[in-house]
Design a protein around this nucleic acid. Structure first.
Length: 945
DNA sequence: TGTTCATT
DNA sequence: AATGAACA
């Protein structure tokens, strides 16, 4: 491992600003009334770096007097920066004092910016064999990254630090070399630093240009290859482009000198630091400072980071392991791709064993069934569980160790071997750990093996811990274990005709690849189990998400029958209607063209027919023919309405009528959707392949599709049960709004009743329009919408919408209060939660940027409501599933559509089950408002709904 | 890759 | 507000 010397250079102002704005919503004020946010923020970052990295060399760079060179070149440079806030101005002298007391060198030079100082020093240190880490949140520094120079982005509220080396920069900026970041910044500009950039070029275009031209200069030399407006703009601004690039370039020749000795990190003068921290009232920091340096010899040249625990992990071989074919060393063929920051299979110790004989399998099974908890992974080809082909199964019950059961034979052979492991899978006392266990259950189902015992699913665990992040095993391993798993691509090659099948690669590579997953899953579980408990998510996890996974697996396996013949005849009718519409349209337009092409359509509408004086254009210079535009134009010419109808029909045909029959499974003859349990950040499920949660219902034409969803045979009936107004009931109950609760208790039509209240009229005098307005406002409330969105939706003016909302709040004051409380809670905690404690993090709720912030404010209202509704139906599903299983019913639950459950019910059971299902759904959770369920039945989904 | 449109 | 799928 590397014992290279490491230098940390901190960008003072950037860290100070960051610290200050992080706390802007509740600034730290000490007893003397002084705002210490900026000082605290900076000090925390500094100590965090020292604590984590234990650097031998460290310094802090400040700007002084602005950049003379840049201001000469471009007088407006950085003039856009807001006036420095008071708290930051007073912070600087204190930070100087702290640094002096800590014996940390301060680097500043009149007329130079910290960027330039850091840049110059990094390059000098590199020559002397140092690894330099530039500690800053500022992406501009990416241009300096090299093999030995890294960006070290300090942690933001629990997000962990990020270290950018060359690969990260290549990825973030989509460039080949870090220097190209200069070109990127030059092209795109930077509003904060007032670097103008090329007009009309943003992030996307800059990246595109860099891919084609590689540099600003080369782009400017080849502008003749550009098209249209872009060409004009770029050609007219060549000067500006070159200047921008100059402004974005960090200088590497400042008058500073790197002397190793001057940058050594020593113990602070604890007396002095204590004094300063006391004055600032930083009690926790004052206490922790000596501890940080305790384990920190003041002059030690050994780097502590990355010290692999190679010595401790060598306690490998178990008593029986020599019986197995084993391989514990992997050839290291290519370390160029090897990322310094992550551990990989190549640079870390592990002990994975290959199991391929009856005897070794017997031994393995014997070991497995004596464990309390085992992680497993089934590696397959093909995502469809019914046709999936198993490569092998891996197990792990100890960090870094695992077993691969090879299943490279034919189906029969696979079945026989898996059968040997039935005692493990069906053992009720062994906990099974997996990543996306639902998939494993479905695969095992093909071999009639059930997965019994307690389950721990790392994907679902992480979904509860961080609902809006990604939950791939790869990402999780990288963030929690600092380990980069072997990518499938590195084994079988990039997508394309040269891609191998995983079966074609060496068996030991297959094994390593598969065992690694079980190993990592096992390790992740140890983290997540603790975190779940810490955040009070255990009940939600154990009582809802985990049991639900089994329920969903059976629903997916069950599938729903589709009447494909019906859809085919529907398709034929649609073809006819589409054809007729097309003819009418061509006749009215007096020209034949391609209706499907927005370009041609725009030309016909606005040039040929001249429907409107000054037609709107899109960014690309074409006429805009979007839904919104056309709807407005509808009164101008009946052709517009026909075009809209045509579009609707084509869409209907392509997305549903013609597509669904292709999704019928060959083996079962039914449609098996996949429910994703870890996708929607609010806690809802989502459905794909195909999506059965967005089958049309609103238009007469569209809803016909529902007729194609039918019971399995003539002895069955489709039954649909849906919650009525569940979201409004939840908000009424959570806010405890008396007036709304009473409306529900009286069983009134809630939208009409809302209308009566806001217009101050009797319930029976509410007009249809008033009711529909009230309905829109009710929805608006659920979504946390403002006047603007509501106005758009109701086709009213902003003022009218505002008035509507105001009178709504006036009639439901408690509701308004609830919303305000919800937002306050979010501001304070940066998350909101549902009735069962499901969290949604809103880290932008305190953002400076009003647009981002109000997005999170809407979510602060919407997420708990949508999420609580999701919690409730999940509980109901688990209860109903138990009921159906325990009662040995033939009837099956098939689908969930957010507030609706669809069943394939045996005719003999309908009378018994109906009331039971209603009861389970209505009492899944007790509120101060009754939950009510409407239930329908029929020979297809349309009739049942 | 973004836009449009289906659902709740 | 939040999904997924089709299409240009």
């Amino acid at each position: 491992m590397s014992t290279q010397k490491r230098l940390f250079l901190l960008d003072a102002y950037a860290l100070i600003f960051r610290g200050y704005y992080a706390l802007i919503k509740n600034p730290r004020i000490n007893s003397k009334g002084m705002d210490t946010s900026a000082i605290l923020g900076f000090t925390n970052s500094l100590l965090d770096v020292i604590k984590r990295e234990k650097p031998n060399h460290l310094a802090v760079a400040f700007d002084k007097g602005g950049s003379h060179i840049r201001s000469e070149a471009f007088p407006e440079y950085k003039s856009n920066r807001q006036e420095t806030p008071e708290a930051i101005k007073i912070a600087v002298p204190y930070i100087h004092k702290i640094l002096e007391a800590m014996h940390i060198p301060i680097i500043e030079k009149e007329g130079f910016e910290a960027d330039d100082l850091i840049g110059t020093l990094s390059k000098q240190a590199e020559k002397e064999g140092f690894q330099t880490f530039m500690v800053t949140p500022d992406k501009d520094f990416a241009q300096l990254v090299s093999e030995n120079i890294f960006m070290y982005k300090p942690s933001r509220m629990g997000n962990g630090i990020e270290i950018w080396g060359i690969p990260e920069v290549q990825k973030k900026f989509e460039v080949e070399r870090p220097e190209q970041v200069i070109d990127y910044l030059g092209m795109m500009g930077d509003a904060v630093d007032n670097i103008p950039g090329l007009p009309g070029v943003g992030d996307k275009t800059a990246k595109k240009f860099l891919k084609t031209y590689g540099s600003m200069e080369n782009l400017l030399a080849n502008t003749h290859e550009l098209k249209g407006k872009m060409r004009e703009k770029v050609e007219a601004n060549k000067e500006l482009g070159l200047l921008s690039k100059q402004l974005a370039t960090i200088l590497l020749d400042c008058p500073v000198q790197f002397h190793e000795k001057d940058f050594e990190l020593n113990h602070p003068d604890f007396n002095k630091t204590a004094e300063i921290f006391k004055e600032l009232e930083f009690r926790r920091i004052a206490e922790s400072l000596p501890k940080i340096f305790e384990s920190f010899p003041s002059h030690k040249n050994q780097t502590q980071q990355q010290k692999e625990s190679s010595s401790t992990e060598k306690s490998q071989t178990s008593a029986t392991s020599h019986q197995f074919d084993l391989f514990s060393t992997i050839d290291i063929e290519d370390s160029s791709e090897n990322n310094l920051n992550y551990k990989t299979t190549e640079n870390s110790n592990h002990f994975y064993q290959f199991v391929d004989t009856p005897f070794s399998r017997k031994l393995l099974l014997k070991k497995l069934i004596t464990q309390k908890s085992v992680s497993f992974h089934i590696e397959t080809i093909g995502a469809n569980s019914f046709e999936a082909d198993i490569i092998g199964v891996s197990f792990s019950y100890e960090k870094g160790k695992g077993y691969f059961v090879n299943l490279s034979g034919d189906k029969e052979n696979t079945k026989e071997i898996l059968e040997e492991f039935r005692p493990f899978f069906e053992n009720k006392t062994i906990e099974k750990i997996g990543h996306n266990i639902k998939y494993s259950i479905k695969v095992l189902y093909n071999y009639a093996i059930k997965l019994k015992g307690n389950l721990f699913d790392t994907m679902l665990a992480h979904y509860l811990l961080n609902p809006d992040m990604r939950h791939n095993l790869d990402v999780l391993s990288e963030t929690y274990l600092n380990y980069k798993p072997t990518s499938l691509e590195s084994l079988i090659g990039k997508k394309g005709k040269n891609q191998l099948s995983i079966r074609k690669i060496e068996l030991k590579k297959q094994a390593n690849f598969t065992v690694e997953k079980a190993d990592l899953t096992f390790q992740l579980k140890q983290f997540f189990e603790k975190d779940i408990a810490k955040l009070n998510l255990k009940k939600l996890y154990v009582n809802i998400e985990i049991p639900l996974l089994r329920v969903l697996a059976s629903m997916e396996l069950e599938g729903i029958r589709l009447d494909a013949d019906f859809l085919n005849s529907l398709s034929e009718k649609l073809i006819e209607d589409i054809q007729n519409l097309e003819n009418t349209i061509y006749k009215e337009a007096n020209i034949e063209f391609n209706l499907a092409s927005p370009k041609q359509l725009g030309d016909v509408l606005f040039e040929h027919l001249k429907l409107v004086e000054k037609p709107k254009k899109t960014k690309t210079g074409q006429y805009a023919t979007g839904e919104e535009i056309l709807s407005k134009l509808a009164p101008k010419h009946k052709i517009v309405k026909e075009i809209l109808e045509w579009r609707g029909l084509v869409k209907l045909k392509n997305t549903y009528v013609d597509a669904l029959p292709n999704d019928v499974n060959k083996k079962t003859g039914r449609i098996h959707t996949t429910f994703s349990q870890a996708v929607a950040s609010t806690g809802r499920l989502s459905s794909n392949n195909p999506n059965l949660q967005n089958i049309p219902i609103r238009t007469e034409r569209g809803r016909q599709v529902r007729k194609a969803f039918v019971p399995r045979n003539e002895n069955y009936t489709l039954v649909s049960a849906d919650y009525s107004q569940i979201e409004l009931r939840i908000i009424a109950s959570l806010s405890n709004d008396k007036s709304m609760i009473e409306s529900f208790n009286r069983g009134e039509d809630i939208h009409a009743s809302t209308a009566a209240k806001i217009y101050g009229i009797p319930l029976n005098e509410v007009t249809r329009e008033q009711r529909s307005d009230a309905k829109a406002v009710n929805f608006g409330i659920i979504y946390g919408q403002g006047a603007f969105t509501l106005a758009q939706q109701l086709n009213k003016s902003r003022a009218e919408a505002k008035e509507l909302i105001d009178s709504y709040y006036k009639t439901f004051p408690t509701l308004k209060q609830y919303i305000a409380n919800q937002i306050d809670f979010a501001r304070e905690n940066e998350y909101v939660e549902t009735i069962s404690g499901r969290r949604r993090y809103l880290k932008n709720i305190n953002s400076q940027n009003a647009i981002v912030r109000s997005g999170d404010e809407r979510n602060a209202v919407n997420a708990p409501i949508q999420g609580s509704a999701a919690d409730i139906i999940k509980i109901a599903m688990i209860k109903i599933d138990t009921l159906l299983k325990e009662g040995n019913y033939k009837s099956k639950m098939l689908l969930q559509v957010h507030d609706e459950l669809v069943f394939d019910m045996h005719n003999d059971e309908i009378a018994t089950l109906k009331p039971l299902i209603i009861k389970e759904m209505e009492h899944a959770f007790e509120f101060s408002v009754p939950l009510t369920v409407d239930l329908g039945e029929g020979q297809n989904w349309l009739e049942a709904h």
